[in-house]
Simulated assay, not measured.
Amino acid sequence: MLGENHALIFDFPEYRDVIHHLKETDEAFAQLAKEYHELDHKIRGLEVNAVPTTDENFVALKSRRVALKDELHKRLLNGHGG
């Protein structure tokens, strides 16, 4: 769905408290979460506003978002950022 918000708390609601805790206590997790959030915002902006971009750029942005999400999910499963 175009423009769908993929914020971590929406995609992983069962980890809401862990996400908040790690953002406050783990600098590496917080940095990855910030990059993920900014990238998701950029992708949604491109989709919703129909901003022209190349397919290669769009795929690269979405691929990076998936890689970040996978890394963040692994850290959430550990229950700590590392």
Rank of each mutant, 00 (worst) to 15 (best):
M1Y: 04
L2P: 02
L2E: 09
G3Y: 01
N5M: 04
N5Q: 00
H6G: 02
L8I: 08
I9T: 15
F10C: 05
F10P: 00
F12T: 10
P13V: 07
P13I: 09
E14A: 14
E14H: 13
E14S: 14
I19A: 10
H21V: 02
L22V: 04
E24V: 03
D26Q: 02
A28H: 05
A33M: 02
A33E: 07
A33D: 03
K34W: 03
E35L: 07
E35P: 01
E38M: 05
D40W: 00
H41T: 09
K42D: 10
K42H: 11
G45T: 03
L46Y: 13
L46V: 14
V48I: 15
N49S: 13
N49W: 11
A50V: 13
V51I: 15
T53L: 06
D55I: 11
E56F: 12
N57D: 15
N57Q: 15
V59Y: 07
L61C: 06
L61F: 11
S63W: 01
R64L: 04
R65W: 02
V66G: 00
A67M: 07
L68W: 02
K69R: 15
D70L: 13
L72G: 03
L72I: 15
L72E: 03
R75I: 07
L76Q: 09
L77S: 06
N78H: 12
G79A: 08
G81I: 11
G82I: 08
G82N: 14
